[in-house]
């Protein structure tokens, strides 16, 4: 199957180095301390953050840092067929672990010892790139909750089909069986914190694809900054400043 036409257009009409359309909204869950919805094309993810608050399970308390917990779940209706088990299966557990460790890296946990920060992420529509969307949504939610962070964390995926590196795969391209590279970076510090890769790739191809994904992450970071700026301005105007 041809994923990149000879003119260089992909199945949905994008160029190989284009991300899908990004859309984000902050402050959607009223009870949460911070929340956000993030869309990448057809993938839609909602994230809610509670914290810093009292540690619920005393035995897990850390004396000099905040405890970060994350739960990732996929809604039953998010994929084409109805899913049987939205959370608790091994894939969800692994992704929860991955998101938690990625966000933990950017949160300044030592400023809030003996407390707990909960990040809940739920996938509403899954069309490829769910992990990246979750991390981007979580970043916005943490910023909305005012939790001190050293940098934003942004994430983007990239693949390699028909000998072309492609940015931001959707579900069809993802399930083509080609390699899938997910990168999460701290854009200001220019450091890679999340890197996952599936299927086989040669070393130099891998370098190109990873480089492309990093560029995609930086583009997402710019978008996130815009959104946050808009949101802050809106809050200011609401308070009549």
């Amino acid at each position: 199957m041809e994923y990149v036409s000879p003119e260089g257009l992909r199945l949905d009409g994008r160029r190989p180095m284009e991300t899908r359309q990004l859309r984000a909204e902050i402050g959607v869950v009223s009870r949460a301390d911070g929340s956000a919805v993030f869309e990448m094309g057809n993938t839609k993810v909602i994230a809610a953050v509670y914290g810093p608050r009292e540690v619920q399970n005393r035995s897990q308390q850390i004396n000099d840092k905040a405890l970060v917990l994350c739960e990732y779940s996929i809604a039953n209706f998010s994929t084409g067929d109805r899913m049987r088990k939205p959370k608790g299966d091994r894939l969800s557990m692994e992704i929860s672990l991955v998101i938690r460790q990625t966000m933990e890296e950017c949160i300044l946990t030592h400023l809030m010892p003996r407390s707990q920060i909960d990040i809940f992420v739920q996938v509403l529509q899954a069309d490829g790139g769910t992990r990246s969307a979750c991390i981007n949504a979580a970043t916005l939610a943490l910023a909305d909750a005012g939790i001190p962070m050293c940098d934003l964390v942004t994430s983007c995926s990239a693949g390699y089909l028909n000998s072309t590196p492609l940015l931001d795969l959707n579900y069809v391209e993802d399930s083509a069986g080609g390699p899938d590279v997910i990168v999460g970076i701290l854009p200001n510090l220019d450091k890679v914190t999340l890197l996952q890769m599936d299927a086989e790739l040669q070393m130099d191809t891998f370098e190109n694809v990873m480089q492309l994904a990093i560029e995609g992450c930086k583009a997402v970071a710019n978008y996130l900054r815009e959104i946050l700026l808009e949101h802050t301005k809106k809050l200011e105007s609401c308070r009549g400043v």
Binding site: L189, A199, E200, I214
Partner: peptide
């Protein structure tokens, strides 16, 4: 390269 897993943790340069 068959798989790479770097699940968060300290950031490193490319």
């Amino acid at each position: 390269i068959c798989a790479v897993q770097k699940a968060g943790g300290e950031g490193v340069i490319q």
